[in-house]
Simulated scan of single mutants.
Amino acid sequence: MRKKILVMDTLDDFLKTLQNEIFDEAKQALGEKGFQRWRNPKFYGKMETPDGQSRVTGNCGDTMEIYLRFENNRVSNASYFTDGCASSSVSGSFAAELTLGRNPDEVTDITAQTVLNTIGKLPDKDLHCATLAALAVQEALSNYMSNLSPEKFEKL
């Protein structure tokens, strides 16, 4: 019986050490702000009945979806969904957050650089994830604008 406990303690110690190494690497790659968002995603999930939505697939194969809901000409709710890596998830989360409270003109100002500046950093090999998220935001905005009735469009 003592042998099983020793093996279990050793396995538990190994797994804790491995998890700490993975988290340390993720913090190095994503920065503290990006790491925290990766561990605790915000705005994640597909939205029912959005006013604008998009689905964009990048050259890397990751797909990003952005969903926007508007009230009084401002984004009142936003969410994202991705099948991609941690950098895609973090980028989508911050991109969705950046839209909140903005009117369509202000949403057009959201670029890959805006997303990256908000995150703080991404690994060089994953910088395209910020571009993917920003492009998905712009496509969702375009979808929203194209669905506006002429009367609503004139009031913008």
Rank of each mutant, 00 (worst) to 15 (best):
G61V: 14
C85Q: 00
Q113K: 09
Q113Y: 08
G34R: 06
L135I: 12
F94Q: 10
G45A: 07
D126G: 02
D105K: 14
V56F: 12
T99N: 01
N117L: 03
R37L: 13
T10A: 15
N72M: 04
A140L: 04
Y67T: 00
M8H: 11
V90Q: 03
E65C: 09
P104M: 02
G34D: 00
E21C: 10
Q53T: 14
N59E: 09
N143L: 02
K46V: 15
G92W: 04
R39I: 05
T118A: 01
A112D: 09
F81D: 14
A95E: 05
K16G: 10
E71K: 10
P104R: 02
A29D: 13
R39E: 12
I110K: 13
S93N: 00
C85D: 01
K16Q: 11
K46Q: 15
V115C: 05
N72W: 12
T63V: 03
R37G: 08
Y67M: 06
P123F: 04
S54P: 14
D62Q: 09
G58K: 09
Y67R: 01
Y67I: 01
N143H: 07
G61H: 06
T99Q: 10
I22S: 12
R74C: 08
L30R: 02
M64W: 01
K46C: 13
L30D: 01
Y80I: 07
T111M: 09
I110A: 00
Q28L: 15
E65T: 08
C60T: 11
T114E: 06
F81T: 15
A95C: 07
T10Y: 14
L132Y: 03
R55T: 08
V137I: 07
S91P: 00
T63Y: 01
S93V: 05
P123S: 04
G45I: 07
D109G: 08
G61S: 02
G58L: 09
N77M: 13
T114R: 04
A86N: 08
F14M: 13
V90I: 09
D105S: 12
E139G: 12
L100S: 15
M64T: 10
L127Y: 05
T118W: 03
F14E: 11
A29N: 13
R39H: 05
G45C: 10
V107Q: 00
A140T: 08
I66P: 10
E25C: 08
V90H: 04
P41T: 14
T17D: 07
D24R: 09
L122K: 04
D126A: 04
A133Y: 04
Y80N: 02
D9Q: 13
W38C: 11
R74V: 15
L135D: 14
G61D: 06
L6K: 14
A78G: 15
D124L: 08
D126E: 04
F43I: 14
L98P: 08
F14K: 05
N117A: 06
S91D: 02
T82P: 01
S54E: 00
G52D: 01
P41D: 09
A95Q: 05
T63I: 12
S87R: 08
